[in-house]
Design a protein around this nucleic acid. Sequence first.
DNA 1: TTCATAGTTCGATGCTAACCGAAGTGTTGA
DNA 2: TCAACACTTCGGTTAGCATCGAACTATGAA
Lengths: 226, 226
Amino acid sequence: MKAGTDLAQIASLVGDPARANMLAALMNGAALTASELALEAGVTLPTASAHLAKLSAGGLMRMTRQGRHRYYALADHQVAGMLEVIMGVAAALGPKKVLPGPRDNAMREARICYDHLAGEMGVAMFDAFVERDLLAVNGDDVALTKRGTAFFCDFGIDLAAMQGKRRPVCRACLDWSVRRSHLAGSLGAAIFERFVALKWARREKGTRIIRFTPPGRQSFALMLRD
Amino acid sequence: MKAGTDLAQIASLVGDPARANMLAALMNGAALTASELALEAGVTLPTASAHLAKLSAGGLMRMTRQGRHRYYALADHQVAGMLEVIMGVAAALGPKKVLPGPRDNAMREARICYDHLAGEMGVAMFDAFVERDLLAVNGDDVALTKRGTAFFCDFGIDLAAMQGKRRPVCRACLDWSVRRSHLAGSLGAAIFERFVALKWARREKGTRIIRFTPPGRQSFALMLRD
DNA sequence: TTCATAGTTCGATGCTAACCGAAGTGTTGA
DNA sequence: TCAACACTTCGGTTAGCATCGAACTATGAA
């Protein structure tokens, strides 16, 4: 009985559409003001204020004052993780393909998932690698092919250093915004590092968004094609 | 906006106390009748029936008819996992140390978490391994030590077969009933398999409970100690 | 000081949904 | 065929809470 009460308490905080929209808007890790969140949720300021008070009291949010602004953010990683899991269930259950995922275009296009590229560009990259026989997919398993080994070495990645480590080299990671796989593992991380080193892309400070430079975008497209 | 709506839809299903109690009661993996769930939630049959209809329509539950009984169970693993995560957040936030976790003693002591041992015994095992320098914990990372490698080989586990696989060998998994970590990953799974092979323990059919045999319990304690 | 902006608090309103009793459906057993 | 049981559906009541406008507080700028 007690277990259910706790469960309900947290879930009901997330269970209101206005609050859920606010929480979803904060999933990129940024902190937003009360006004911005009100806009995001489609309610007036007083209503938003009441919701924010509840979320804070419930421990799901953390607030910092800065002058006359109050910035709200998710309380911690655990809360963000919980929201991801719930969205995962929602995505798996809802057969409605009506463009799920972040409203934030930049987030949907390219973002950091731990330490590798996710979003539409991440999925496109993964698909291209498989298409070109650089990666071999077998169920949930992903492995480097001979061609792939040559290709990534050529791209400037030290594959030898990854072998035999605890962390898997290739791993498929399900993208909640697109519901398709992208590349994780040490190779996924190394590729993203290389993108940054080549100045093709950089992380936007304080968020999980990845911004590609115009030339970087071009090089990226080229890399997938040939 | 759409993301928030999906989020709210699922969360609000869990967010009602009566429904949350029902879901919590089903977390041991068993299937219960509508009457039993009504009792569990503390509502009358008609009320429970309405809730169960909603949960089923929402995809969180699965129903099977058996004569004049209707058995309700959680839809799948993903749903059970989501509930675990939410309870984890609730436990982390609620400063009420009033003995959180499953009312069911057997569940709290030892249960399956995917494919490895969780619950009090799982946590005790993890602690002992770290204490004895078989595992090295560094933040969220867990790694095998040299001593650990020798120990687990000696215990009859084929560590070589795990290396280089997609799945991590060691992983820490947060236990919602005890709020401490236990061992997951392929090593965690292999250890549990070994327990079963040695007849120290077995899964109770249809539930997530793990039953240790008396000699198994003794051997287990010995294994942790020396 | 005065004005503007950001946010909270208050009071009133209205809608949703949880709830129960009573009646209805379907299954089992006699 | 009838009675008992398990469960669902229906109708009506009630309580909670999301919502908004208006008034209030606090910070910053002129």
